[in-house]
Design a protein around this nucleic acid. Structure first.
Length: 446
DNA sequence: AAACGAAACAACCGCAGGATC
DNA sequence: TGATCCTGCGGTTGTTTCGTT
């Protein structure tokens, strides 16, 4: 912000904006000179200012902001030229003090001490900002443009979109006209919030069709593909993510963050194992504990391997490798050859016992390497044949996840999007419930 | 009251595929 | 058969609104 002897710039291109009486009244009220008296401001397409009401708001906000700045307030926010000013004006307008414009008694910044000087806007930049490039207007449509487009199409149909703008007297490209018509002006378009039925329909269709918004919109009368796409991106997608469901596959996520509860459990398991005296002399209780812990260990490994299959970033690879290092340490602390064949049989039957030969030191897989792993467990007897938690390796990650979660997820409609913590805690509980079901003995899960 | 950031929405861009010449 | 035009689609960006600090 320069405060000095530069050229004084009028705060609004009043005449060019075609504001009429409103602007004149404003100019008189504020003491600002009418823009017609100066060439400082370039022509600005009045359409970009929208309706009169909005223009008035902008004018008042702008003028008040300038006046405020002239009084030495908040000048730091006026370091940019008009573009930046406009946003500040909007913010000011939206504040409660600016709601009632009649209450405002403007001061004349020209008379204020320390007159504020704004940089003169670049005419070309102003035109670009107004969306005028190559002679064709871009950006938001005005009511006048909408009316022209509607009138033309109602009379003649749209015909060739390329030819339409000229015929309809619009300074837009045909593509812009088509989009405006199909996404907004078409008479059969239904506006307003999506109903519960529509939401469910979108979810179901998306699970089948994917991002085929046009195809999905055919099943939702009055809704455009663009509207559905926006609704998906701003609502449904986030809702699913909060529930721990991959919005693309519609299955529980198997990435790092979804596996976080299990990873936390792993950390606790690490602690627990470190405290365990692995002396080889096991009582009956200890034998069962060993079995559970060994199974947990194996399960954690498979979870980590699942996480690795989501093509993690270098950072997460590093983090996960660090975790697997821990896991390796745990493995070394609990080598399966220290467990009796009976235990191995109990905890995994042939499936588990066969996974890692007794004479082989268990090892985890690095996350930047392919993973092949098999483990089957159920809830009846610590670990046994597959049923509840069936982990079959990376190619079947999604299937595994379905098995892990399928009986635990509440219906979508039960999940409150307005309460993310609810969704998060539910998701967490689902994961923990799975572990608890698989491992009857508590393992120190948070 | 002001400032900031997130959410919601509207519009644009680039590409693909079909139609036409 | 290739070139060009036109339209539709999906992804992305920009703008506005709303809520929070």
């Amino acid at each position: 912000m320069a405060v000095g002897a530069e050229t004084m710039v009028r705060p609004f291109p009043a005449a060019a904006a075609g504001g009429g009486d409103e602007v004149s009244a404003w100019a008189a009220a504020t003491g600002f000179h009418h823009a017609a008296e100066t060439t400082d401001w370039p022509l600005v397409d009045p359409m970009v200012w929208g309706d009169e009401k909005r223009m008035k708001r902008e004018l008042v906000a702008w003028a008040k902001a300038v006046a405020s700045m002239a009084a030495g307030k908040n000048a730091s926010h006026w370091t940019e030229a008009s573009g930046g000013c406009l946003k500040e004006c909007r913010d000011r307008q939206s504040s409660s003090a600016m709601k009632d414009v009649t209450d405002w008694k403007p001061t004349n910044p020209l008379d204020a001490p320390g007159v504020i000087y704004l940089p003169a806007p670049n005419p070309l930049a102003t035109l670009v900002k107004a969306g005028v490039t190559n002679g064709l207007k871009k950006g938001p449509w005005t009511p006048e443009e909408d009316q022209k487009l509607m009138n033309y199409i109602q009379k003649h149909g749209h015909g060739s979109w390329r030819a339409l703008p000229e015929l309809a007297g619009l300074n837009r490209c045909g593509k812009s006209c088509r989009l405006r018509w199909t996404n907004y002006l078409r008479p059969d378009i239904k506006r307003g919030k999506f109903s519960e039925e529509e939401e469910q329909t979108i979810l179901q269709l998306h699970s089948i069709l994917g991002n085929k918004w046009s195809a999905i919109s055919k099943h939702l009368p009055g809704r455009t593909d663009n509207e559905i796409k926006n609704f998906w991106n701003t609502h449904l997608r986030k809702k699913l993510i909060q529930m721990g469901i991959d919005p693309m596959t519609h299955r529980p996520r198997t990435d790092f963050f979804a596996a976080l509860p299990q990873l936390i459990a792993l950390a606790n398991l690490h602690q627990l194992i470190e405290q365990q005296p692995w002396d080889g002399h096991t009582s009956g209780t200890q034998t069962q504990t060993e079995a559970v812990q060994a199974a947990n260990l194996q399960y954690m490994q498979s979870l980590l391997q699942s996480a690795a299959s989501i093509a993690p970033s270098p950072t997460s690879i590093s983090s996960l490798n660090s975790l697997t290092s821990d896991l390796d340490q745990i493995s070394l602390l609990t080598p399966q050859h220290m467990l009796s064949p009976t235990i191995l049989e109990n905890i995994g039957g042939n499936d588990f016992a066969g996974q890692v030969p007794h004479n082989q030191t268990p090892s985890t897989t690095r996350f930047d390497q392919p993973v092949i792993s098999n483990i089957n467990m159920n809830s009846d007897n610590n670990v046994s044949s597959s049923e509840r938690c069936h982990v079959e390796g990376e190619d079947n990650n999604s299937q595994k996840s379905m098995l892990l979660y399928e009986n635990s997820l509440p219906p979508l409609s039960d999940m409150s999007a307005s309460n993310p913590s609810n969704a998060m805690s539910t998701s967490k509980c689902v994961a923990l419930q799975c572990i608890d079901n698989s491992f009857p003995q508590p393992i120190g899960i948070v």
